[in-house]
Nucleic acid binder design. Structure first.
Lengths: 144, 144
DNA sequence: TTAGTTGCAAATCGTTTGCATCAAG
DNA sequence: CTTGATGCAAACGATTTGCAACTAA
């Protein structure tokens, strides 16, 4: 619950105009427990009586990604992209293949490994995507 | 260069009919150095004078994925899905954000980590996707 | 013979774009 | 005022689907 609806400093710092839509979208993404799709954002704004067109959602998301404020992924296996707030802490997600819920896990097991790769492969590593699949506490018992 | 065009045993074992198309597609995927898209497969078959419709390519890919013979990912960042042969060895890819080439690295740094997660999160892990981004030997000098 | 497989064209889905209008700086 | 932001509808690319013809088992 940070930045209650006020991201103007951040936006100004990135050279983006401070519009209501950008503020609300940043708020929605920052306060979302899970990575969220463009359509889900669009619907959230509708709930909040903040009418916006879906194309503007996409355009805003693109600009926020390009400024590094949020991150885009295509992880769920289906075709929709999802977006998440760029926090300093490094997190990954457990994705339940049963109920499709995502669970966040703190920390990242890859730091050492990446250092090793950097020297053995002569490859400058700038980032990674890691998603772990399985069955959550509840779904493992349902035995589908 | 395994299974030179003959995957009939594998297909029979999975309860899939042994058609020429399925054989050639499996061959193309198994012998591809990198994850390959549906369209690339379609074009490869054309080269090989094995005319097929793009919709059949998608249908075959879907059935091979569901049988666990190949794996589908949406990793490249753009919207196309890619497919790779399911080998027993576990491999990941370095993706160069400069030239978009992929480099395969053997081994996987996650086995221990997953065991730990399994106990701390009460989550049965069945798999994961890991892709590492950066700049390859050549592109890091270009300094874009 | 028959259930599974294919090609084709049309449909769908997520996303992007052109353009005229509008609003923030 | 000027540049960037928006809404709308149309365009787009990747993938899916309905249906009739076909073919492996």
């Amino acid at each position: 619950m940070n930045n209650i609806g006020n991201y103007s400093n951040i936006l100004k710092h990135e050279g983006l105009k401070n519009t209501k839509h950008r503020n609300v979208i940043l708020e929605v993404i920052e306060n979302s427990e899970q990575p969220i799709s463009a359509e889900q954002i669009f619907l959230k704004l509708k709930e909040k009586k903040n009418s916006i067109s879906i194309s503007s959602v996409y355009r805003i998301l693109e600009s926020l990604v390009s400024k590094g404020l949020i991150t885009k992924s295509n992880i769920t296996g289906d075709s929709k992209a999802t977006y998440e707030f760029n926090r300093s802490e490094h997190k990954h997600h457990l994705i339940c293949t049963g109920c499709k819920k995502m669970f966040t896990v703190d920390g990242c097991p890859l730091e050492e490994y990446e250092k090793r790769l950097k020297s053995t492969m002569d490859f400058d590593i700038t980032g990674h995507k890691l998603e772990i699949f399985g069955l959550c506490k509840e779904c493992k018992h349902i035995n589908k």
